[in-house]
């Protein structure tokens, strides 16, 4: 004799089977709620993308390709050329990465393997705390601590060292692409350290012990075992930091000097895609609102691609 399966569609006679069937069907509302909420969230995201595309559309049709390759950005009347903003966004991010990647990876490895056990917990907590500090606080710190340091010490020093030649020429008033890049690097440092430390922790201890038992020195274990094994995940951490640097708004807006011009040197003021939206959006007039939305669209595409890449990398590292 076969026992009827509760999921079968055949009409069932017994009370128990009937209850099972009913309980299964009466859960449709629950599934509908789940799907409806998921669909609502998806719809809001679609609306979000659509609203930016829609607002940007007039600027895209009237400026065309000049929106991306145009060299001048004049608020209010146009023309709206985002090339200076794109260059400033990329150069501040590049400066941030030049400092944050080596320092971050070294700190992650030092934290994981070198620091005495007793200090490891507090230092790791400090790093995680700093990853959570709001960016406006980093901006405030940039204005109050770093700007005076730049004006009095770093900029005269760099300029003197290189005889005021490129890229260390120009105004020495603190607010600059260089400062924005350095503040960014300090902001993404905790992210890079925290994520790459997690990645390093997944390197199997057997591999490390195997290398040590074969007579490898600590340095060789770092450079020949840990970094190659964790390569994909470390790259993911770096790309994650890159995404954060590209989209960071307030801290950059506070220290970059908000000036949409092609940079002459590292000391010139500038504006990034994100920072100009923050500064200009509130008092934009005429066609500028649409042009700023077009910048938002460019930024959305760039950071979307970067984050998608980072997720793919970290996931591949996790599943391997």
């Amino acid at each position: 004799m076969t026992i009827p399966s509760p999921v079968s569609e055949r009409p069932l006679k017994s009370d128990v089977a009937e209850r099972i069937r009913r309980s299964a069907t009466s859960d449709r509302p629950f599934r509908y709620v789940l799907r409806a909420t998921a669909a609502l969230f998806g719809a809001v995201i679609v609306l979000f993308v659509w609203s930016i595309v829609k607002t940007a559309w007039p600027a895209i049709t009237s400026n065309g390709i000049n929106l991306i390759i145009g060299r001048t950005w004049i608020a209010g009347s146009g023309p709206y050329g985002a090339l200076p903003l794109i260059i400033d966004t990329l150069s501040t991010t590049a400066i941030a990465l030049i400092f944050a990647v080596p320092v971050g990876l070294a700190s992650a490895m030092a934290l994981q393997f070198q620091v005495p056990q007793r200090l490891r917990g507090p230092l790791a907590s400090l790093v995680e705390l700093l990853a959570a500090v709001p960016s406006v606080v980093y901006g405030l710190w940039g204005i109050a601590v770093m700007v005076p340091f730049f004006i009095n010490t770093l900029e005269p020093f760099l300029s003197h060292l290189t005889g005021s030649s490129w890229p260390f020429n120009g105004p020495q008033d603190g607010f600059s692409i260089l400062l924005a890049g350095i503040v960014l690097s300090i902001m993404i440092l905790p992210t890079i350290v925290a994520v790459s430390r997690d990645v390093i922790a997944t390197v199997p201890i057997e591999v490390v012990e195997g290398a040590l038992s074969l007579g490898a020195t600590r340095g060789q274990v770092f450079s020949k075992v840990i970094i190659p094994t964790a390569r994909t995940g470390l790259l993911g951490a770096i790309v994650l930091g890159t995404g954060r640097a590209l989209g960071e708004t307030i801290a950059v807006a506070m220290v970059i000097g908000s000036n949409a011009q092609l940079p002459h040197s590292l000391f010139s003021s500038g504006a990034t895609l994100a920072s100009i939206i923050a500064v200009e959006f509130g008092n934009s007039v005429g066609s500028e609102g649409s042009a700023l939305a077009a910048l938002a669209l460019i930024l959305m595409v760039i950071t979307g691609l970067v984050n998608w890449g980072a997720r793919a990398l970290t996931r591949r590292a996790a599943t391997r």
């Binding site: 979000f48 829609k54 607002t55 994650l240 994100a274």
Partner: peptide, 20 residues
Amino acid sequence: TVVEIMTGMPSILLGVFAYE
């Protein structure tokens, strides 16, 4: 995937959306 990309979306973009 949408959730993961949104986690890294620059927050200023959501400000533009809420404004519009």
